[in-house]
């Protein structure tokens, strides 16, 4: 029952020398000396040394991709009011988003609100300008994680939206990070002047995170979740 089956005929291994445009099996690889190898070449003897150690596993640059399993919120938790406050292009982005889109509540009274999306992510951007300050808010959501061997997971020391969270401040820009609905979210809060409210206290970014509302997304895809990229 366990034999993998596929319509494509499978060859145990096909070695193709794409660079040379021909089959490489049976060709003689160049010797470092530039001389062709013969059957009595010491290279053949070296095979014994190589067999003595199992083949090496490499360290993956950029991390090993693994798609997150999205747990979509119940439809009745969606804020229709916040969704309808977006422009048509942003509403379209919400509808196409591969992850649940969270945005600041309308009470934040932002002058501009935009939602964007990509194959593995969604992003909100909003801005409010007053005579005293400019406040910029970002929310990013990702479903494509990278696994790095040797990176030891740590639980965030804060709690936001009932989840373990990290809260950081990068060059004056507040940032909160947590995992919700199976998706990695981060919230950014930037003010000019840097310490203008609500950036004058950590409570500002925490309150903003707690107030985020779900406005939608493209919904469950039973056959597209948590993919380990091929």
């Amino acid at each position: 029952m366990s034999e993998p089956r596929r319509a494509l005929p499978v060859v145990s291994v096909v070695v193709l020398a794409i660079a040379s445009g021909g089959l490489a099996c049976g060709t003689t690889p160049p010797d470092p000396s530039g001389q062709p190898r013969s059957a009595s070449d010491p290279l053949d003897d070296a095979a014994g040394d190589l067999v003595a150690r199992p083949p090496s596993r490499g360290k993956v640059r950029g991390g090993e991709r693994m798609r997150r399993t999205v747990t979509w919120p119940e439809a009745d938790t969606r804020s229709v009011e916040a969704y309808e406050s977006l422009d048509a292009r942003s509403r379209e982005a919400v509808d196409l988003a591969p992850v649940p889109v969270l945005v600041p509540a309308l009470a934040e009274a932002l002058d501009e609100r935009k939602v964007m999306q990509g194959p593995e992510w969604a992003a909100f951007w909003g801005r409010r300008e007053t005579a005293e300050s400019t406040v910029t808010i970002t929310v990013n959501a990702s479903r494509m994680a990278r696994v790095y061997p040797g990176v030891t997971p740590k639980p965030g020391p804060h709690t936001l939206r009932g989840k373990e969270a990290f809260v950081s401040r990068n060059e004056g820009i507040w940032s909160a990070t947590w995992i919700e609905h199976g998706v990695a979210y981060d919230l950014g809060l930037e003010c000019a002047p840097v310490d203008a409210p609500p950036c004058d206290d950590q409570a500002g970014v925490e309150a903003l995170a707690e107030g985020l509302v779900y406005v939608g997304g493209r919904g469950p895809e039973p056959k597209q979740e948590q993919e380990v990229e091929r």
Partner: peptide
């Protein structure tokens, strides 16, 4: 900023 398994979106 990357989505690093074990942390989420981090620098």
């Amino acid at each position: 900023r990357k989505d690093v398994a074990g942390f989420g979106n981090v620098y």
